[in-house]
Design a protein around this nucleic acid. Sequence first.
DNA 1: ACCTCCGGGACGTCCCGTTTAT
DNA 2: ATAAACGGGACGTCCCGGAGGT
Lengths: 220, 220, 220, 220
Amino acid sequence: LEAQMTGKSATPRVLSEEWAPVEVRPQQDRAARTRSEIIVAAARLFDYKGFPATSISDIADEVGMTKGAVYFHFRNKEDIALEVVRQHYAGWPDIIAEAKSEGLPPLETIKVLVNRVAREFRDNIVVKAGARLQAERNLIGASLPRPYVGWTQILTEMFTDAEEAGQLRAGVSPAAAARTLVSAFHGVQHVSDILTGRTDLIDRWTELRELLFFAIAAQP
Amino acid sequence: LEAQMTGKSATPRVLSEEWAPVEVRPQQDRAARTRSEIIVAAARLFDYKGFPATSISDIADEVGMTKGAVYFHFRNKEDIALEVVRQHYAGWPDIIAEAKSEGLPPLETIKVLVNRVAREFRDNIVVKAGARLQAERNLIGASLPRPYVGWTQILTEMFTDAEEAGQLRAGVSPAAAARTLVSAFHGVQHVSDILTGRTDLIDRWTELRELLFFAIAAQP
Amino acid sequence: LEAQMTGKSATPRVLSEEWAPVEVRPQQDRAARTRSEIIVAAARLFDYKGFPATSISDIADEVGMTKGAVYFHFRNKEDIALEVVRQHYAGWPDIIAEAKSEGLPPLETIKVLVNRVAREFRDNIVVKAGARLQAERNLIGASLPRPYVGWTQILTEMFTDAEEAGQLRAGVSPAAAARTLVSAFHGVQHVSDILTGRTDLIDRWTELRELLFFAIAAQP
Amino acid sequence: LEAQMTGKSATPRVLSEEWAPVEVRPQQDRAARTRSEIIVAAARLFDYKGFPATSISDIADEVGMTKGAVYFHFRNKEDIALEVVRQHYAGWPDIIAEAKSEGLPPLETIKVLVNRVAREFRDNIVVKAGARLQAERNLIGASLPRPYVGWTQILTEMFTDAEEAGQLRAGVSPAAAARTLVSAFHGVQHVSDILTGRTDLIDRWTELRELLFFAIAAQP
DNA sequence: ACCTCCGGGACGTCCCGTTTAT
DNA sequence: ATAAACGGGACGTCCCGGAGGT
């Protein structure tokens, strides 16, 4: 749970797309596609080698373009990393909304949500790259959004809902639970990355979830 | 809980120092002092800027020497990082032995131990730097020892002791408990580092400890 | 007579230039010009100071560019040396064809040819540099073509022609004559370089030629 | 025939050693031995890698000493090269005297002499190293003695003797014969070094000798 | 006298992230 | 959008002094 969240609850993207201009010029279309290709290629490299070891040349080669073309779309290497991180964040609102829409009790909603997040961390290249970039944030520049605090806030709200629903064990603070979940999830994801390339992430997260939620949840 | 541990119990350093020759050649003494100064200066910079952003020149400046002097003691930058990581590990056996020597029940021994480890992560510059270097290990070279597995093994043994002493809640696996503790501690330490420079590490660790050990320990 | 020759006869450059596209892209033109300037500047320095003593900075200064520009055209210093050596070789086929086209008897053709080669060794900076680089070949890298063998082969063929024309003294082996001519010419060129900067090369070659061809040629 | 010769005829070393002080202090003896070991080790490396690629560390390692020890005996790397070249030269007078002492006619004396010199170029590590250092002389410093001129002078004298003895073909200049022999021998030796590591030096020299002396000698 | 240990600057190569001319 | 050029370091390593032991 790496990301700086916007804090306001998830805006359904479908709606916001309604507001977008229907007619886009084909050139802008192509530019957007190129931009996107660059981002994905960069994400692959950032995930594999990290930010400092990835050169602009590497990225240009990976997309089959010249360095100049890359510089046409992004002012510098930091901007590319920034966009990767932005897209890492951009996906969460929908996922959160989806989890909430299932109508489960708060604690179960959280479980479902983080299960889904874990899968993204294992499978989605942009999410993976964004996580690594956040871990290397002080090698990049001070411009990345602060990580962890958004998720902490979202989860604090959800754990507060759980408390109000009587799902929390007496003495458990929603904020502490949120902080601990965010930190521990990060730890699990990172250690899994180092030791197994995140192939065992789901198992490790399951182990963590069982212990943590036993301590958080009220006894039935 | 970053480190690859040797597994063998701590050698009583006091004793071995008694056996050391009293007279050491002063030149070698100076060299050892210089080496140590380089390590500490490098640790400061690695902790602050990370491995790739720290140049040999930076280190030389930090100790007030020239690059040539640094290269007399270390073949390359990687070797310096390696030595920092080595010293990060070198302290744990004594700390583990110390915790065990208090004669507490297994679970309390683990708590005391990790409390102490948390303080090291907050205060000891070499420990801090070693942790960061391990996090950046794929930017360095494949030569660093594998992190986490040593601590996981140590803690698995201690949780097994706890199980045999009847301290574990039914259904809790010692190995899973150890893995989760190692990962979650790493997460707490890392997030605390990013958000507060580890000043709130003890508080965050306390929050994690209360939840995790409630789930792990048998009800009294 | 330093060079590894290709063996195939000279391609008439005039003709092939007729066939070349008249319109070349101006940028590539500029690049080719720059590349060529770098080669000539490097040749001057290699001839003057040798390969190890010539730094990339020296070359960049000599052409009035920056190191980065040089590295845009060549991957490393060795590649520059390689190209100088390549151009040293590239000129021989035409010169050989020219000598042969005069329709002289074989032995006289050889004399005319080597006279011309001697002038190149005295006047052509790339030829001079290439010769020196070949002399320093084990300081560079194992990638330079083997010297001397190409010329030995060419001259062996020509001396064989002479033998068939009855121009060789009885008992003189064409191969031995070729080997000796190649080695002795190299020696004359080198000693002349060391002692006079090759200003007396023609005289020294004349002395050698008179003696050697007296021994090789059949008495009239 | 690389060397700068002193020009005065060979001084029998046995004699000059008679004049040396009989009693030397044992420490100086050790120093001389150490010096000599350094020279031989350096010669091995110079012959193998050339001057620029041979570092003081290499030499120190080769003799099993520290760099400081080497610097005690020689002021700098150039001095070591200088001494190697000096010893390359130092052996010729005896060899020349030996050849002359056989009482052969001048031309045969020259042949015997150069045959012997060729063997030295093939077998004697200091001679080989000195030759290579002379070839790399402008990479070292302007301090090496001028090569070739000494041998040219010696051989000019000997060819003049031959002329006076009626052994020279009409029209052959003793000076030109000497110059050509020196240059051509250098060429043969160098090409043999590059192509076969001087294993075929004797054969190549024999080929050269047969041709050259046929041209030089009066017909019987 | 001979040698070791430790440290000091100085470059050399390579490469990287970026603008300028086209 | 490309091709060409620009500075600026980073790393490594080399040649070499001084301080001091033996």
